[in-house]
Amino acid sequence: MTGADTKKEVIFWGLLAGIFGLLPVVSHNDYHLIMANHIIVWGLFAVAFNMLFGITGMLSFGQALFYGIGGYGVGLMVKYLGKAWFLPGMAAGVLAAAVLAYLLGFLIIRVSGVFFTILTLAFGQLAWQVTFRWYHVTGGDDGIQGIIPPGILGNKVFYYYVCLACVLASVWYLRSLSNSPLGLILRCVRQNPARVRFLGRHVRRNQRRVYVISSVFAALAGGLMSGVDNSVHTNMFYWTTSGEVILMSVLGGIHQFFGPFIGAALIKIIEDVVGSRTEFWPLIIGLLMMTMVLAFPRGVVGEFQMLKARWQWRALERARRG
């Protein structure tokens, strides 16, 4: 990384920690707090998803599977064993997601491109069906209500800061990963898998690796969310949830590490602002996405950097002439 990149990175982390860290101090509005909590948790989910898509080039349409497992890990433990099991439930959900992603990886990472995408979708929907139908265990379409974190975690503001700490630490780890040798190999897998084999590296093995990593953080996001909403619902497994992180990533820009996080914030804000005025908000989001993909394919962050580069270039030209 060059010096300018490092500076930008520091500024970004500063802004992220500053804005979300100070929010509960500035505003005592519960609604704002929940909104901010949704943004950071979805932000983590989207960044984790983009490790697969933007970095490694694997379009999973089924990350909701792991998000749901994270949520129901907490939900089921609290429902059957009591609220003291909130944190162990979160650990169990994350662990279950890791094991499942590892096993599923052998099954579905033998095919590439659209076949991989369809298989992830199929397994996600399968998990949704099971959760939906298995009423006496999962509560079916009723979901699980009354998931209150124990002790001081039950305090909304405290819980928010715990989420923020988890999200920042996780995003920090994923950022380090993307700059590391493993991240480099993953980007190489996207750009030229045939050549990766000629580096003596296994393409599928690295794809399975990132599939597990991405799924673990999706599950963590699901677990955290159960405590924000105090409930889990079968929607967490539904394909629209998988679709939503894709939209967030594309909107923010899949080739910028922080793009999906920005995209998550934008989508949540749009849903909120537009959703309170009209029930047609999915239509608005749809139109927005079409515009983005057709007119601004680099995403918000990508287009912004493009504009800046162009502006700097022009300034340079002017300086040269003048």
């Binding site: 990384m1 780890y173 380090s176 990963l177 700059n179 590391s180 040798p181 493993l182 991240g183 480099l184 190999i185 190489c188 580096l199 003596g200 590296r201 690796r209």
Partner: peptide
């Protein structure tokens, strides 16, 4: 990336 591969360091995920 080729040098890292030869040195067996392509699984390292923390340091840049």
């Amino acid at each position: 990336v080729a040098c890292l591969s030869r040195l067996g360091q392509t699984r390292r995920s923390l340091r840049s």
